[in-house]
Amino acid sequence: MSVLVLGAGGFLGLNTVDALLEHGVQPTCGRRKRSNVLGLRQRKVPLVVADLEQQQTLLEAMRGFSTVVHLAGHYPRLSTQPELSLQVAQRQTRHVLDAAAEAGVERLIYVSSTATVAARADRPSDERDLYARTPGFGAYHDLKWAMEQQVAAEKRLRPVILCPGACVGPFDWKAGTSAVLWALKGGQCPPHPDGVVSWVDARDVGLAIARLVKSSLAPARLLLAAQSLGFHQFIEATAARYGVAEVAPALSAEAAIALADCEERRVEVEGGRPRISRELADLIVHGPRVDGSHARALLGFEYRSLPEALGAFDAWAQRLGVGLSTRTEVDAR
């Protein structure tokens, strides 16, 4: 079995590589010329240059592989340049699809997001629920939707689309979802709206991918979420774990989005990190309740609990010995 993982050195990438190794599969890991491969070197997995901006490197990297796991979908830190973000996302996705088709890849496992999952009033959302058109909430939702549309329309491969919720666990180098956790660990309650968060242990995302790789299953789309709960409730539970003395009340949706926009404009000039990102505000405000039971039944695993996920995050943070500080990332880096 030959598996190439794109985005292997990142948050979900390392969790996926670990799960594959535990399942007896040694993946080859795509890397950019400039990327952090320290974690991959420690795991002693083979590396190959695969830059999403350079289609020829993708083609050369993919030759001979039957399965490609694509975890490297464009992820802009800020939502301030939506048109540019969308262009980058669609261009890179086209490069991956064209290279995979030309290289003769049989199966593409693409990791999308529950940002593409449309909310239902009558029941939790499941695999059937996808926005019929671009959500229009903000840059993150729109580009995730656009990329998933590109992959779903692909006829030359057998794409499997996974949509994980907010991932909690080790190796979140970019402090995406874990920005909230780092703030709480530091004794600060970040400003936040209320809404719904559907979270999943990042190790379970890796596990689901490994089970898919090992099987001949080819579902078109699977949602991965352990639980959906109110975001303020999530904050309260996590704040209690980290001993945060005072939990800030939830902002209204409008106030949270306005604050996020203001913060993102500020950090574009000053650097640093927004106290709340537009992506996070949109995800919470528009977050659907997600039913992740189909993936659990199909792939035969049980979702880990929130304390287990937070415990893994804490253990990783302790090993690092420092908090992650982040600055604005340039969109097309």
Binding site: R34, S35, N36, V37, L38, Q42, L320, L324, S325, T326
Partner: peptide
């Protein structure tokens, strides 16, 4: 640099000179 950049830097260094450096 942010944490991502600083880790990328050390990674580039490790690759350039063949050093075995842990993430920690």
């Amino acid at each position: 640099m942010d944490s991502v950049c600083s880790l990328e830097l050390i990674s580039m260094l490790a690759e350039e000179f063949g050093l075995d450096i842990s993430v920690e």
